[in-house]
Design a protein around this nucleic acid. Sequence first.
DNA 1: CCTTTATATTACTCTGACATATTGATTTGA
DNA 2: TCAAATCAATATGTCAGAGTAATATAAAGG
Lengths: 260, 260
Amino acid sequence: MSDTDMPETPPPVVQTDDDASTTTPRTRRGTGRRLHGAIAHKLGAAIVSGEYRPGDTLSGEVAFSEALDVSRSAYREAVQVLSAKGLVESRPKTGTRVLPRSRWNLLDPDVLAWAFSGEPDIHFVRSLFELRAIVEPAAARLAAERREKADLKEMRDALAAMRRHTLATEAGRAADRDFHNAVLAATRNDALVVLTASIGAAVAWTTQFKQRSRALPRNPVPDHVKVYDAIAAGDVEGAGEAMRLLVDLALEDTRSAMEG
Amino acid sequence: MSDTDMPETPPPVVQTDDDASTTTPRTRRGTGRRLHGAIAHKLGAAIVSGEYRPGDTLSGEVAFSEALDVSRSAYREAVQVLSAKGLVESRPKTGTRVLPRSRWNLLDPDVLAWAFSGEPDIHFVRSLFELRAIVEPAAARLAAERREKADLKEMRDALAAMRRHTLATEAGRAADRDFHNAVLAATRNDALVVLTASIGAAVAWTTQFKQRSRALPRNPVPDHVKVYDAIAAGDVEGAGEAMRLLVDLALEDTRSAMEG
DNA sequence: CCTTTATATTACTCTGACATATTGATTTGA
DNA sequence: TCAAATCAATATGTCAGAGTAATATAAAGG
């Protein structure tokens, strides 16, 4: 993930640790990562969460930047990031306004992270899983056609790691991601790789929710093994079917966790 | 498309139209759009075309910005855009380096535009069409399930426009896009919409190539009508199959145009 | 009523300075 | 001799203020 990462930004407190502060508490702010990154995160999250709505126009650069107590440069660089992701558009005289949702790069990893930093829209989560249910089985079919020995080894290693740890641990989740990435890599399709990298990140979010609400009810390894076996055997139909099952189960788990 | 658009940036000539120029010819540069946008386009295109390769580190901000004869601010804002799209990463002391290809947001509309502003990598084009062949039929199936009356009207209107104009005209291509967008909108899936918006833009590029090399050999309307009929009838299987045919034919046309 | 011109507002660009973080060498200690 | 801590060099990060260019709105003219 690029600059603004997933772990919640610690509240950018202005620590007034100075003692004889005759001067206003300036220059000593945010603890977070790079400043413009933090601002982009803040604004981006506010936009995708609906706090600012499409068509709304942000207060001018000078006003907003000094409201945030940052320089105009930092604020502008943050806005450039948002603009690059299709969230806002700036024009002279008009100001900076939020673009219609249709122009947002919803599959951008950062945008997804912002979307999931608050209360994720259940409708959108459904969309993501639906897309995943479309893409991943097709990817498994391609992988069954094109996999090389090295790909299969990657998958085996990931499976072994999944067996060792569980999905409750970070190592286990990483192994899960590794497995899916290995399948993707075996398709020799760059567009597929980057797409499901985004989706996978989002799905990882929902997985955390799942863990939070109830202990994981199912051992995911056998389903993954079925996918592996079919891919290793070059069984195109079987690979697609096994992956479809896998995604459906994940959707089912997450849905019950979110709605229940 | 967001800021940096498709039409070739007119060469950013430094017009030295001043007569008694004792001063260096500054402040009067690039005719193009916003300055940082132009620079982002230039650098982005250079990166995706392989001129700078992953791991390469760009010359420092001061050096590079004055080599381009722009201020550091403008250069930095451009780099922020590239960073937001996962092309580069900047760190103190280390400098700005090109990230591995796996971290590029290849489905970002701007990145796609940059990729297609030069000689498009035929391998990557193949990946895009493969992805399209996966997603669009699935979208057609969903559309057949969920379409409302208004969706069908949109599709009919687009079809009518396609009949009036041809794919050789801009109006015709717009109608083609409208039809596909209508199908997408009928799926009620935001993730699908934004994804195929990207792919569609890229495909539109290749369509232009197609037109350039040979007069269009096939009337696309009947195939589109078949898709419409199936969706209107709620025929899930038929809709998927008809769309699959449509995408396959487009791929065939483009492949022969690019390789021949 | 429509077109054209003026104007005010806003983002855009530039400049130059300082702060901060990270690397790599240097020094110190075991 | 090797390892850990220290320090300096360097490039990005942030700040401040001034001036430019573009554009929507209002005003003037046809």
